[in-house]
């Protein structure tokens, strides 16, 4: 901490007025510089570099790097994989909502309301998948979903349902990946909702109980409205980040297949960059993804803001 041994300039404190000339104007910057530095170095400069790279054709290592204008963008938009990945990205975002928002909300309320002495045990088990490395979870699921030996198919066989090719079937694969991803993020939503519930004022709920409301009525009339900001936050995170959360599962389980059925924009970007070493197109895709992402994030922020204020 070089910054911390220098004399404190009296005027630099918040709320105080005239700053003695020439002293300590650098002190605040010394505090924020390390954080700002790493963010500029690893986020903002790369973002600009990505934009620049998107106008060149390059294979990541070669010496030739011709300027191609918007060709990379044109090629990308003409690639059917792009349209498919974009559509799948939407499916991931929306398909994750039940497992990342609805179920965690319901379970959190049940555990909070009726968990009793088991509350802590439930929380421990339900949060565990969050701390499990995603690849480890995906590998374990791969075994569960194995078309011939997997316990899921064995169990289904026991009730007379034929074996399914969970990860190899074009129609099933994306939903299998969503379930595996949802298994991982369920605990996060559960914990965030639990946190919000533990922050609620018990008074209001007890008043309603004294008024003769049933647990269901209390949940509907009091708990859910009070949780609205948290529900909106989790929805926002899921819609915005869902396809990113699925990355590890896609990479381990399907590599985007079969025939692109589980691909999404983030995974496509990875493949362009480090599968095909097509740096230019990968960068063009990154620019498009970032732009779309920014628009989506801003629109959602505004929407949640408005919905949140209505309550």
């Amino acid at each position: 901490m070089t910054s911390t041994t220098t004399a404190a300039p009296p005027g630099a404190d918040r709320g105080s007025g005239a700053r003695p000339a020439g002293t300590g104007a650098a002190l605040p910057w010394l505090h924020v510089a390390p954080a700002l530095g790493v963010v500029v170095l690893w986020v903002y400069l790369p973002l600009l570099a990505t934009l620049a790279l998107s106008f060149f054709r390059w294979n990541l290592t070669g010496d030739e790097r011709p300027f191609v204008g918007l060709d990379n963008y044109a090629a990308l938009l003409g690639d059917p994989a792009f349209a498919r990945a974009a559509g799948n990205t939407l499916i991931y975002a929306l398909g994750l909502l039940p497992l990342a928002v609805l179920l965690p909300l319901a379970v959190a309320i049940l555990v909070w309301n009726r968990g009793g002495r088991l509350r802590q045990a439930y929380r421990t088990i339900l949060f565990a998948p969050v701390i499990l490395p995603p690849v480890v979870g995906a590998v374990m699921w791969q075994w569960l979903l194995h078309p011939l030996l997997g316990v899921v198919n064995l169990a289904l066989g026991g009730i007379g349902v034929g074996p399914q090719n969970w990860l190899g079937d074009r129609d099933l694969a994306i939903w299998s990946v969503i379930v595996v991803t949802g298994w991982k993020v369920f605990g996060l939503g559960f914990l965030i909702f639990s946190a919000a519930l533990s922050g609620l004022e018990r008074n209001q709920i007890e008043a309603a109980r004294v008024d003769g409301a049933t647990e269901g009525e209390i949940t509907r009339a009091i708990v859910l409205p009070l949780l609205t900001p948290t529900i909106l936050l989790m929805t926002f995170l899921t819609v915005t980040l869902g396809a990113q959360w699925a990355f590890s599962a896609v990479h381990v389980l399907t590599q985007g297949g079969p025939a692109g059925a589980t691909d999404n924009l983030y995974y496509l970007l990875y493949r362009y960059a480090f599968g095909y070493f097509d740096t230019g197109t990968a960068s063009a895709l990154a620019v498009l993804v970032f732009a779309g992402f920014a628009v989506l994030a801003l629109a959602q922020l505004r929407l949640t803001d408005r919905l949140g204020h209505d309550r």
């Binding site: 009296p10 005027g11 404190d13 709320g15 105080s16 007025g17 005239a18 700053r19 003695p20």
Partner: peptide, 9 residues
């Protein structure tokens, strides 16, 4: 101001 928590303009 006397404490030195603020400084006069």
């Amino acid at each position: 101001l006397l404490a030195g928590l603020e400084h006069p303009d």
